[in-house]
Design a protein around this nucleic acid. Sequence first.
DNA 1: ACTAAATCCGACTATTTTTGTCAAGTATAA
DNA 2: TTATACTTGACAAAAATAGTCGGATTTAGT
Lengths: 150, 150
Amino acid sequence: MSLRISTKGRYGIRAVSRIAVERESLPVSLHTISREEHIPLHYLEQLLLRLRRKGLVSSIRGPKGGYVLNRRPDRISVAEILEALEGKLSMTDCLSRGECSLDKKCILNPFWARLNDRIQSDLDNITLEELVSGAWERKLKPAVHIKDPA
Amino acid sequence: MSLRISTKGRYGIRAVSRIAVERESLPVSLHTISREEHIPLHYLEQLLLRLRRKGLVSSIRGPKGGYVLNRRPDRISVAEILEALEGKLSMTDCLSRGECSLDKKCILNPFWARLNDRIQSDLDNITLEELVSGAWERKLKPAVHIKDPA
DNA sequence: ACTAAATCCGACTATTTTTGTCAAGTATAA
DNA sequence: TTATACTTGACAAAAATAGTCGGATTTAGT
Ligand code: FES
Ligand code: FES
């Protein structure tokens, strides 16, 4: 099944969401997130590491430590989180590496690019704040299904 | 990198496109497609097999044989081809299997569903005819990037 | 009837990506 | 000083993807 968001991406977004809802920017520990979100502790560890290295979260060591957001939730896009975890969005290898089994890009390439842009745009336009508050629904309109008048 | 279309999907769409552009619905052989599109012959074979079983193409055996479309190109959507090859589009396991490491679906589920619908809609609305003619560009508008007025 | 071109089909292997696991270390609050 | 919690790199298991193979069947052309 293609066009999937891996657990890495989902776990990561759930984790950041959990940190985001913590009031007073109290640090949230891996243990807490792991327990509440049912994410394997050591796997989660890797994900938060990436997010920290990308500057999305900061860590506080020692007892009462954990992770806090580096920016306000309304300044973090879903795209950033996903990109930190899984790399830049690229639906096909021909968009990123130019690999396509063909030497030069084929006629379909602009189609992949357009599709890619549209998804990227959706992810760019939704902030972490909107994601956890549910406000994303206003921005991300339901698709209009064009019925075939056959 | 997530949200990728596998080579299976791309190879398949390229193959069907190649069959679609053949005039007079002359059958196109695996050998021809493999050579022209640089797709491994025996891999391609598997893909066309799936497409045939899903009723998108028909095969003609024996010399001068090959594959032809079962329907006019303007009656086949990109979504159908992709679905025949890779199964129904489902961005996350929580949409299809309900798996999420959580017992019940979390607050993010409707977001995944909406995103999924929007992509599905794009793929549904483009026909094979539009794909090979380039007419898809009119339907699939470029994403409008909302700039942050910070 | 024979031959060569072509699909059919299942099983198998290889490669890559995803999804974890582990162990030894560092920092710090109480 | 101790227990809590992050840090880091290496490793391992599992799943998905990508590709291969061998033998069978069908059929146009001669
Ligand atoms: S499918 Fe990659 S450039 Fe055509
Ligand atoms: S991430 Fe799957 S339901 Fe929440």
